[in-house]
Design a protein around this nucleic acid. Structure first.
Length: 208
DNA sequence: ACAAGGATCCTCT
DNA sequence: GAGGATCCTTGTT
């Protein structure tokens, strides 16, 4: 991706991009870039946590200190710690007061592969970036980034990237505690024909 | 102040 | 395919 620095791929997405239903935002996030310093990752897999009435969502039982950014304005990060060690990055969707988010589950490296490999124990293949905890590690973020605006220069930035033409869909991972209707809903989306995707066996063609 | 469980990852078999 | 790691968040006492 050599001469990518002078095209629009690195223009930040405005907050208004995220000011709609999380499933729509999720679909349109496929192919976008997450940029932090020398590291550029292309988003390849996401999950929508919707509003209202999604029993898998952290926001389902009301606002807490942890999930407060979900209730805030769109286009901010929501980062939380999972299983005591994994930093999970979400993009906040919907207007302020309506708590929805998109979990970034996997990415494909665009630039900064050496830095990513160093942060991921030397891994350079899809194992390095297929899983939400792996993405957090590759970007070296933690919960102190929760609430960060994703369009502000110099931090963690969500940019236009290279939007994906085709998508696969399937049920979200690790939410057996949710009501069946939400547990089985196909609200996990991934770039089609892409190796940088986790749990590929449970995905099917869904498109756009 | 306490107990329970988690939107996962890694290693080993 | 199974289990341990690892500690914060949450709801309750």
């Amino acid at each position: 991706m050599g001469a990518a620095t002078d095209d629009a791929a690195f223009d930040p997405l405005p907050p208004a991009f995220c000011e709609r239903d999380a499933l729509s935002v999720a679909r349109d996030l496929l192919g976008r870039y997450l940029v932090r310093d020398s590291v550029v990752l292309r988003i390849t897999e996401v999950e929508a946590y919707r509003w209202p009435d999604d029993t898998a969502s952290h926001a389902n039982r009301g606002q807490t200190r942890r999930n407060a950014p979900m209730f805030g304005p769109p286009g901010h990060a929501y980062v939380y710690l999972c299983y005591g060690l994994h930093q999970m990055l979400n993009v906040v969707a919907r207007p302020e007061g309506e708590a929805a988010a998109v979990l970034i589950r996997a990415c494909e490296p665009v630039e900064g592969l050496d830095v990513v490999a160093a942060r991921r124990g030397g891994r350079r293949g899809p194992d390095a970036l297929t899983g939400p905890g792996k993405v957090g590690a590759a970007l070296a973020i933690d919960t102190s980034w929760s609430g960060h605006p994703l369009w502000a220069p110099g931090g963690l930035v969500l940019t236009h990237g290279a939007p994906a033409d085709d998508a696969l869909e399937g049920p979200r991972v690790g939410i057996d505690y949710a009501e069946p209707a939400h547990r089985d809903a196909p609200w996990r989306l991934a770039v089609a024909d892409c190796r940088w995707v986790s749990h590929r066996r449970s995905l099917r063609g869904g498109g756009r």
